[in-house]
Simulated scan of single mutants.
Amino acid sequence: MAAVRPPGLTTHVLDLVRGRPGAGMAWRLYRVVNDRRALLAQGRTNADGRTDQPLLQGDTLRAGLYELEFDAAAYFHDAGGPTGSIWTTIPIRFEISDEGGHYHVPLLLAPGGYSTYRGS
Rank of each mutant, 00 (worst) to 15 (best):
V4N: 08
R5P: 09
P6L: 09
P6T: 09
G8M: 09
L9M: 07
L9Y: 02
H12C: 09
H12T: 02
H12A: 10
L14A: 10
L14P: 00
L14Y: 14
D15Y: 04
V17A: 13
R18E: 06
G19Q: 06
G19H: 05
A23V: 03
G24D: 13
M25A: 03
M25P: 00
A26M: 08
R28C: 02
L29S: 03
Y30K: 03
Y30P: 01
Y30E: 01
R31E: 14
R31A: 10
R36C: 01
L40Q: 07
A41F: 01
Q42W: 07
R44D: 07
T45V: 04
N46F: 05
N46S: 06
D48E: 12
G49L: 09
D52H: 12
Q53A: 15
Q53R: 15
Q53W: 10
L56W: 12
L56I: 01
L56P: 03
L56V: 05
Q57L: 02
G58E: 08
T60S: 15
L61T: 02
A63Q: 12
A63W: 11
G64S: 10
G64F: 10
G64Y: 11
L65K: 09
Y66V: 02
E67L: 06
L68V: 04
E69N: 08
A72D: 09
Y75P: 08
F76Q: 11
A79N: 14
G80I: 11
G80V: 01
G81P: 09
G81F: 12
T83C: 07
G84V: 03
G84E: 10
S85Q: 11
I86W: 15
W87Q: 15
I92F: 00
I92E: 06
R93K: 07
R93L: 05
E95G: 08
E95S: 13
I96H: 01
I96L: 11
E99T: 14
G101Y: 05
H104M: 05
V105P: 03
P106S: 11
L107A: 02
L107Q: 04
L108T: 00
L109G: 07
P111T: 08
G113Q: 12
S115P: 00
S115C: 03
Y117T: 09
Y117L: 11
S120G: 15
